[in-house]
Design a protein around this nucleic acid. Structure first.
Lengths: 257, 257
DNA sequence: TCAAAAGTGTTTAGCCTACACCCATGC
DNA sequence: GCATGGGTGTAGGCTAAACACTTTTGA
């Protein structure tokens, strides 16, 4: 009863304060233990998972709404966020039909069509530092956690497709832009960075060539200190030179409007 | 009076049959006389120009709406159409303020806010064969014609930015995908194709290297026939091998959902 | 002392760039 | 015949890929 009332209120809030027909979905990617992870939400009272999504307030910029949603789900801000595609098929259901999807959500009949209605959804991907994120479910969900990118289950709606396309875009981006600033801790080793690249690209790279290339970008600063405590030879620590990193990004990145 | 009635009716139509808060805009690019052209519309009773735009019907896929709009403005179908960015700032006005824009449009006060309201707009660019298009204005405009891409005047809304970003995306796309199928006539010469590339990239290219590269893609079929009637040595005619061309596209192109 | 990981330079191959001469056509 | 544009191949440079040995550290 409590829940149903809150739900009604939320739907009202949606109708009055947010743009209708448009939403956004986030593929929040993190990196940990040599694995690329994606943040998923589990729908209340079900075993169904989906990407975090959000809506846009009437007087809010699209990009701001994406940042806000990211903040709400992870507590993080000032994060790399990139629009990659806008999804607009009437029936954005790949794993289950609309019928099935509606049934799975277990919503009261009178609000189902408000929640599972026809939306244009703008897809963003974010690269975040795994350790700093505090996964937080939203109203419709009761669990929010990281999944290994290659163990993602069949998701609600067309969210598996979204992840696939986000990855594809990310991989392409890797070829003309530096990456890693928000995916790695402040100080990291060259092997850390290489592992990140290998994980995203899904292939192994030559250590020497990788190092040459990365140093060639001139965005890394080698610290005096080395990483100790490892079982083997102590690797150097590096840090991104924020200014040069931002400049390298700006030289190529599409402006966001 | 007639006009105002029709306008009211249109606004009603918008409200009932189309998604609110979302629209789409097209940068329709054509190629003629060694010039890249873009199709612009002139707003009724003004000297103000803008990109062709459209709205999405409730039961219509986003991509289908883009194709429909393209067809309505040019009579063309089966054309290359590529989503490049979704624009979502609250105030998408770069050349003039919202105040100024509203004044320029010369609409009755009671519908102005319906037409010039806050929208998320999905941007597409299309590559069309100049000669085949039949530019056709829509309800709000009285002229539809090609403009040289580097002589585009200050446009309404953020449409100059849209053109800029469409071109940037197109240029990048050129580096990993073939282009030209819809921009050139069925049969064309290597210099034709080169001129197209040079125009899009805004720089001249080496003839021999260009030819080598294009033939290397293995998507062109050289015909027996040569182009006659020119003032000089008759160049070979080529045709795109549709199948191989599509395959080359598919190998890289983002799927559209 | 052994195993595992990290640091480092050189050689090679492939691709992209630069470049020049001959030929066909219309005027 | 001459001016204009089109057809064609090769040499050099740069970037990217391949590749092996030495050093450090903990167990």
């Amino acid at each position: 009863m409590e829940y149903k009332k809150a739900l009604q209120k939320l739907v009202e809030d949606f109708k009055t304060n947010f743009l209708s027909s448009v939403s956004l979905d986030l593929a929040i990617l993190g990196f940990h233990d040599g694995q690329l992870k994606v943040l998923l939400l589990r729908w209340k009272g079900t075993d169904e998972w989906c990407l975090p999504g959000g809506r846009i307030r009437h007087e809010e910029n699209l990009e701001a709404a994406a940042y806000r949603t990211l903040r709400e789900r992870t507590g993080l801000h000032e994060i790399f966020l990139q629009q990659f595609h806008t999804f607009g098929d009437v029936m954005r259901y790949t794993n289950f039909s609309k019928q099935e999807t509606m049934a799975k959500l277990g919503l009261p009949d009178d609000v189902t069509h408000e929640i599972v209605s026809r939306d244009i959804s703008v897809g963003y991907y974010a690269l975040v530092e795994f350790a700093n994120a505090v996964p937080t479910p939203d109203f419709f969900t009761e669990e929010c956690r990281w999944w290994d990118i290659d163990q993602v289950p069949p998701l609600l709606f067309d969210h598996n497709d979204m992840i696939k396309l986000a990855l594809k875009t990310l991989r392409r981006q890797l070829s003309y832009q530096p990456i890693g600033y928000n995916l790695l801790p402040d100080r990291f080793t060259m092997p850390d960075l290489q592992q990140l690249y290998e994980t995203i690209l899904g292939q192994s790279l030559d250590r020497r060539n990788f190092q040459k290339r990365m140093l060639g970008y001139n965005i890394l600063e080698r610290l005096e200190e080395r990483k100790t405590g490892g079982a083997h030879k102590a690797p150097y620590l590096y840090r991104f030179d924020k200014e040069k990193y931002e400049k390298a990004l700006a030289d190529e990145i599409l402006f966001v409007g």
